[in-house]
Computed example of a mutant assay.
Amino acid sequence: MNLLAHAYLSFRQPELLVGNMISDFVKGRKRFDFPDGIQKGIALHRAIDSFTDEHLVNIEAKRIFKPAVGLYGAAFLDVAYDHFLAADNLAFPAGSLPDFTQWVYKTIGGYQHHFPESFAGMYPYMREQDWLSNYQFRWGIEKSMQGLVRRARYLEDAKPAFDAFEANIEQLQNAYHRFFPELLLFVTNYYRNHLISSPGMPS
């Protein structure tokens, strides 16, 4: 899953949120350099990614992007799913997404001394340009895909991937609605089994 999903699936627990957001920038045993709560967030992020990558719905859905981006299909599917999450009224009732994203920026901003260097360089742009809220817009998804292309090897143009997104948006949305409730159940059970109980945990 992409940034918005990882933020949402942190259940408003600050250190869990930080770990979940920085995990892709923490390699190997470096995760043990962080406080326990952030380590748990890093582990949660990796559990989410493993569940997502292995799910049959996503194995099929990422093929939509394969002609455009080859082996990067899963990363582009993650961005597409953030679009559908941002528009999901069960996750974000009308008008609540901007409040949530501002809470995320403010919360993780209090832990900047724990940011890996690469995430520290990205964070000001994410906050100032409000990447998390912009996933609700198709232009926001296009910009996010352009960012993936800039960071990826062997890719030069995001347009084929965005065209695939637009041409198959109904199929991708159906995949999201089949997959995300199962992901939420998985993460809820993971939370209960591996993390400290909290009033913020979904029932």
Score class of each variant (00 low, 15 high):
Phe65Trp: 11
Arg31Tyr: 02
Pro202Lys: 09
Arg63Gln: 11
Ala94Met: 06
Ala61Pro: 10
Val69Tyr: 05
Asp157Leu: 12
Glu156Gln: 14
Pro93Tyr: 11
Gln173Gly: 11
Asn89Gln: 10
Asp53Lys: 09
Tyr105Glu: 05
Val79Tyr: 02
Phe165Glu: 07
Val18Arg: 14
His55Arg: 10
Phe137Ser: 05
Met126Gly: 02
Arg192Gly: 07
Glu142Lys: 11
His55Phe: 07
Asp163Glu: 08
Asn189His: 14
Leu77His: 02
Val187Pro: 07
Gln171Cys: 06
Val26Ile: 02
Phe137Val: 03
Ser96Ile: 08
Ile196Arg: 09
Thr107Ala: 07
His113Asp: 15
Gln173His: 15
Ser50Pro: 03
Phe115Glu: 14
His45Gln: 00
Phe11Asn: 13
Phe34Val: 05
Arg178His: 06
Arg63Leu: 13
Leu56Phe: 01
Thr52Glu: 12
Ser23Ala: 15
Asp53Ser: 00
Leu56Pro: 01
Gly95Phe: 06
Asn193Met: 03
Glu128Asp: 15
Trp103Val: 13
Leu195Trp: 04
Phe34Glu: 02
Leu185Asn: 14
Gly19Met: 10
Lys62Asp: 01
Ala94Tyr: 05
Leu9Lys: 05
Ile169Phe: 04
Ser197Val: 04
Phe137Glu: 15
Ala75Gln: 01
Glu142Asn: 07
Arg138His: 06
Gln13Met: 04
Thr107Val: 02
Ile196Ser: 13
His177Val: 11
Asn174His: 08
His113Thr: 11
Glu156Ala: 07
Asp78Phe: 02
Val69Arg: 02
Val187Thr: 03
Gly70Thr: 06
Asp130His: 09
Ser144Tyr: 02
Phe137Asn: 15
Ser96Asp: 12
Tyr135Ile: 01
Gln112Val: 12
Ser96Gln: 11
Lys106Glu: 04
His177Arg: 11
Thr188Pro: 11
Gly147Ala: 00
Phe34Asn: 10
Val18Thr: 12
Phe179Met: 06
Asp53Glu: 11
Gly19Trp: 01
Gly37Ala: 10
Arg178Trp: 02
Phe51Ser: 12
Glu142Ser: 06
Glu54His: 10
Phe180Lys: 06
Ser118Glu: 13
Pro116Tyr: 07
Ala87Val: 04
His194Ser: 00
Thr52Asn: 08
Tyr154Asp: 08
Ala5Asp: 01
Glu54Leu: 10
Gln129Cys: 14
Tyr123Gln: 12
Leu71Pro: 03
